[in-house]
C-alpha cells in the first residue's frame, strides 16, 4: 500500500511540476467541446441532447493523451525498471499508476463538467448517480489505460497504437457512462444504477487483470 502511494505521489509530483496536463491536455479537452458546438448547431437542441455522449467522448480522447504522456516519460528514463530495482511489486506499481491517473482524470472531468454546464447550458439532476458513474468510468479507463499504456510505452509507434488498442476496449465504458449520465440528468435515477454497476464490473475486472498481467508485462514487454 505504501508503495502504491509512493508511485502515485511521484506521478502527481511530476505532473504538478511539468504541468503537461493543465497546459496541454485540459485545453485540448475544452477545445474539443468547442468543436462539437461548431459541428452540431447549438440552436437546434442537438447539442443539449447529445451532451452526455460528447462529454464522455471528450474524456476518452483526453485520457488517451494523458496516458501517452504518463507512460512516455517513464519509458524514456527507464523509470519502471528503476522502480522494480527498488524492490517494488509489479502490482504495486500498477495500482500506483492507476491511482495517479484516476486523480488526474477526475480533476479533468471536474473542469469539463463546469465547462459543459456553462457552454452547453446543462441542468444537473441525479448528482449522486453522476458522481458514482464518473468514478466508476474513470477507474475503468485508468485500469485498462495503465495496462496498455505500459505495454506501448517503449514502442516507437505508441502514439498511433495506443488509441487503436484503447478505444475499442473502452466501447462499453462509453456506452454505459453515456446512458447512465443521460438517465441521471433526466432525473429517472432508478435504471441508471445498473449502468453504474456495469461500469463497476468493468473497472474491477480490469483491476484484477492488470494486477495479474503487470508482472509479465514489466518483465518482457
Amino acid at each position: 500500500m505504501r508503495d502504491v502511494l509512493l508511485v502515485a505521489a511521484k506521478d502527481l509530483r511530476i505532473e504538478r511540476r511539468s504541468r503537461i496536463g493543465t497546459a496541454q491536455v485540459l485545453p485540448f479537452a475544452l477545445l474539443v467541446l468547442l468543436l462539437f458546438a461548431f459541428a452540431l448547431d447549438p440552436d437546434r437542441g442537438l447539442l443539449e441532447a447529445a451532451t452526455p455522449g460528447l462529454f464522455w467522448v471528450t474524456v476518452l480522447f483526453s485520457a488517451v493523451l494523458a496516458l501517452q504522456r504518463n507512460f512516455g516519460i517513464e519509458a524514456e528514463d527507464g523509470i519502471i525498471d528503476a522502480l522494480r530495482l527498488c524492490g517494488m511489486a509489479p502490482s504495486s506499481i500498477y495500482f500506483g499508476k492507476v491511482l495517479a491517473l484516476v486523480v488526474q482524470l477526475f480533476a479533468l472531468e471536474f473542469v469539463l463538467v463546469i465547462a459543459v454546464a456553462v457552454f452547453y447550458n446543462l441542468e444537473f439532476n441525479g448528482i449522486p448517480l453522476l458522481v458514482v458513474i464518473s468514478l466508476a468510468a474513470t477507474l475503468g479507463i485508468a485500469a485498462t489505460g495503465s495496462i496498455y499504456g505500459a505495454l506501448s510505452a517503449r514502442l516507437r509507434s505508441r502514439d498511433t497504437l495506443l488509441p487503436l488498442l484503447m478505444l475499442p476496449l473502452l466501447a462499453p465504458v462509453l456506452i454505459s457512462a453515456t446512458r447512465g449520465s443521460e438517465i441521471a440528468l433526466r432525473g429517472e435515477v432508478g435504471t441508471g444504477w445498473s449502468w453504474a454497476a456495469l461500469l463497476g464490473l468493468f473497472a474491477s475486472t480490469y483491476l484484477i487483470v492488470g494486477a495479474v498481467l503487470f508482472s509479465p508485462l514489466l518483465e518482457d514487454a
Binding site: 488498442l165 462499453p172 454505459s176 445498473s194 456495469l198 475486472t205 518483465e219 518482457d220
Partner: peptide
C-alpha cells in the same frame, strides 16, 4: 520473439475479458 509474444498474449487476454462486457452493454443499449 519473447517480447512480441508477451505483448500479444497480454492483448489477447485483455481483449477476451471484454467480450461479455461489450455484449452486455450493447444488448442493454
Amino acid at each position: 520473439p519473447r517480447t512480441r509474444a508477451t505483448r500479444s498474449a497480454i492483448v489477447g487476454l485483455v481483449a477476451v475479458v471484454n467480450i461479455p462486457i461489450v455484449h452486455k452493454a450493447v444488448d442493454w443499449w
